[in-house]
Design a protein around this nucleic acid. Structure first.
Lengths: 332, 332
DNA sequence: CTGAAAGCGCTTACAG
DNA sequence: CTGAAAGCGCTTACAG
C-alpha cells in the first residue's frame, strides 16, 4: 500500500490540493505550509503516482522503442542513445522486438498506445507501409528511422546509405581493385538495401567499371553465418573477384572467415569492406574496414527529436540525416 | 482524442458498465447486446486504456529490467529472453541502464515504481546491498540476478560461476598446462568475480598445482581493450604462462589479440578460455573456447519467475540456478 | 494563500 | 441480464 497524496494531506493538516501544489512547485503557497507538507512527504516517503498523473495530464512520460532485434549488435547502441536522451528528461522507455514482422509491429504499436506512451521511435520493417500509414494517422508523435513516410506528426531519421556505399567502393577502387563483388543484404527491399546497392553501382560506373549483376548476391539474413556461406559461394563461382563490399559488418565478418577458410588472405587476396562499424569490427583479425554509422548518436537524436515534437506539436521538423564515415582498418 | 468507453456506450446505447463487461469478457450478458457493443467497438476502433485500468486494478502489466549496460554483448540476449517471456503474457518492459552505479540504480528503481510497474528484474551493481534492502522492503516483487539477497518477495537467479571456472581450468590442465594465468575481471567484488576466482583456485589446488597470486590480474573494465592491455602486461612479466582463463569473453578476445600482436600463437603458445559465450566468441580467429551461460534462458526464466510471483504473491520460490557448459573451440 | 468540486478512463461491489 | 454510484490517485479550473 504505497502512501498517497491524501495520506500526506492528512498528516500535514492541509488539503490534497495544497500537497499537489508543493509537489508540482506551482507557486502561490506560504513557506510555512510548504515546509509542513515537505516534512510530511519526507516522513511518509511519499512519491506521486505517475500513473494517476498521466491519466489526467495525458502525459505519461514514457515512450516506446521498436527495433527488429536487440541481439543484432547494431541496435544496442541505438537503444543506449535513446535511453540516455530519455533519462535526462525523466522519460522511461519500453523496448520491443519486432523481428521485422509488420503484423508484430502493428500489434506492438497498439500495445504501446494502450499504455499511453507519449511517442514512439520505430525502425519499421520493409513492408509496413499501409500499417504505419493508418497507425500514424491516429497516433502521434512518431519518429521513423530509415524509412520514407511523409505525414504530419511523423519525423524521419535517415542514414546516408548511398554515400556510405560510394565511400566504400571508391576506397576499393583506389586500391586498384576492378573486380568487386557485393553481399547485398536481405532480400526485402529496405531503404538501406536499395540505397547501398545504388551507391555501389553508381560508384563503379563513375569510375568506368562495369556493373556485373552476378557479383551482387542477396542474403537471407544479415548475419555472420550468411556472410560466410555466400562469400564461399561467390568466390568459388567468380574467383576473379578481389574485393567484396558487404551490406553490413556481420556479413563482412562472415566473409573474412570464409576467405580465411578458403586460403585467401585478407586483404592481400581479397579486400573486404563492411557497413555499420559494430563494436567487433575493430577487434576481428584482421580488423574490418567499414562505413561507420554513429548508432549512439542516431538513437540520441531520434529521442531528442521526439521530445521536441512533444514540446511543440504544431511544428513540423525536417528529416535528420545521419552522416557516414569510412573507417580504414586492416581488411581493405 | 482517442475514443473512450463512454463513446462506445453511447453508440451502442448501453451503459459504460456493459461495455466494460464485454471488453473483459466477464460473462452474464445477453448475446444480442454483446454483439451490439462489439460492433460499436469495431466501428469506433476503441481500445481500452491500460493506464486507467491499471489505476483501479493496481496492475499495470508492465515490468522493469535494469542492466548495467545494454551495449555489453552479454545483455542483449538476456533482454531478448525477458522481452519474449513478457510479450507472450501481454507485458511491456521498461529497459534501463545502471552503469553499475548504485545511486543510479536506486534512482531508476524508484522511477519505475512511480510508473507502477508490477515487478522488476535487476542485475544489481556490486555495492547496492543497503539500497536494495530498503527498496525491496517496500516494493515487490523483485527478481535479482547474480546477487545474494534473502528477503520476502524477492527471487534469485544465480549462475554457477564456480563450476564454470572449474570446467575451464580442468580443460586447460587436461591439455597439459601447468602455468595458468587469470584475467579476473572488474576490481569490485561481484558475486561472479568472487566465485570465478574461487573456482579457478580450487581447480588448480585439486590438481596439485600451486596458486600464484601474481598470475591473477584484476581489470578495470571487462572489455576487449582491457583484456588486450592486461594480457600484454601479464605475458611480458611472466612469459612462462602458457594458458589464460578470462573472467569473460570480451577480456578473452582481447587476450587473443594481444597474443597475436606478441607473436604468440593461440592455442599453441598460449591457450585461452573465456566465459559467457557471447556471439562473437564463435566467430573470432581462432574461435574462442569458453564457458557458456544461456543468457536468453536466463532472461526468459527470470521473467517467468516474476510472472509466477505476481500470480502467487504468498508463495516463496527457491533460487533459479543457471547451469554452465564448457564449449570447446579453437583457442584452447 | 488555501480548499471543495469535477473529472481523467476505467473497474468494483451493490442493486434492481 | 443491466445500470447508477463510488473510487483508483492525481490535476484543473473555479471560488473564497
Amino acid at each position: 500500500m504505497p502512501t498517497t497524496m491524501r495520506d500526506v494531506a492528512l498528516k500535514a493538516g492541509v488539503s490534497i490540493k495544497t500537497v499537489s501544489r508543493v509537489v508540482n512547485d506551482s507557486g502561490e503557497i506560504s513557506e510555512a505550509t510548504r515546509q509542513r507538507v515537505l516534512v510530511a512527504i519526507e516522513e511518509l516517503g511519499y512519491r506521486p503516482s505517475r500513473l494517476a498523473r498521466a491519466l489526467v495530464t495525458q502525459r505519461s512520460h514514457t515512450v516506446g522503442l521498436l527495433v527488429a532485434d536487440i541481439t543484432n549488435p547494431f541496435f544496442p547502441e541505438v537503444a543506449r542513445g535513446v535511453l540516455d536522451a530519455a533519462q535526462t528528461e525523466g522519460y522511461n522507455v519500453f523496448l520491443c522486438n519486432t523481428d521485422g514482422d509488420p503484423e508484430q509491429e502493428l500489434h506492438l504499436l497498439h500495445s504501446l498506445a494502450d499504455h499511453a506512451v507519449d511517442g514512439i521511435i520505430i525502425y519499421p520493417s520493409y513492408e509496413s507501409g499501409e500499417y504505419l500509414q493508418t497507425f500514424a494517422g491516429q497516433y502521434r508523435p512518431l519518429v521513423i528511422v530509415n524509412y520514407y513516410h511523409d505525414q504530419q506528426g511523423v519525423s524521419l531519421v535517415i542514414v546516408d546509405h548511398k554515400r556510405g556505399a560510394q565511400l566504400a567502393v571508391e576506397h576499393l577502387i583506389r586500391q586498384g581493385h576492378i573486380a568487386i563483388g557485393m553481399l547485398s543484404g536481405v532480400r526485402n527491399p529496405s531503404l538501406g538495401k536499395v540505397r547501398r546497392i545504388q551507391g555501389f553501382k553508381e560508384a563503379l560506373t563513375a569510375h568506368g567499371l562495369p556493373v556485373v549483376e552476378e557479383w551482387i548476391v542477396a542474403n537471407k539474413e544479415p548475419t555472420f553465418a550468411d556472410g560466410y556461406a555466400s562469400t564461399r559461394q561467390l568466390l568459388s563461382q567468380h574467383p576473379q573477384i578481389t574485393a567484396i563490399f558487404a551490406y553490413n559488418d556481420l556479413l563482412a565478418l562472415g566473409a573474412i572467415r570464409a576467405c580465411n577458410d578458403l586460403g585467401r588472405r585478407v586483404p592481400a587476396d581479397c579486400a573486404i569492406v563492411g557497413f555499420d562499424d559494430i563494436p567487433w569490427a575493430a577487434t576481428s583479425i584482421p580488423t574490418l574496414t567499414t562505413v561507420r554509422v554513429d548508432k549512439y548518436l542516431l538513437g540520441y537524436q531520434a529521442m531528442t527529436r521526439l521530445l521536441e515534437m512533444l514540446e511543440q506539436p504544431e511544428l513540423s521538423f525536417p528529416p535528420i540525416c545521419m552522416d557516414v564515415e569510412l573507417i580504414i582498418r586492416e581488411s581493405a
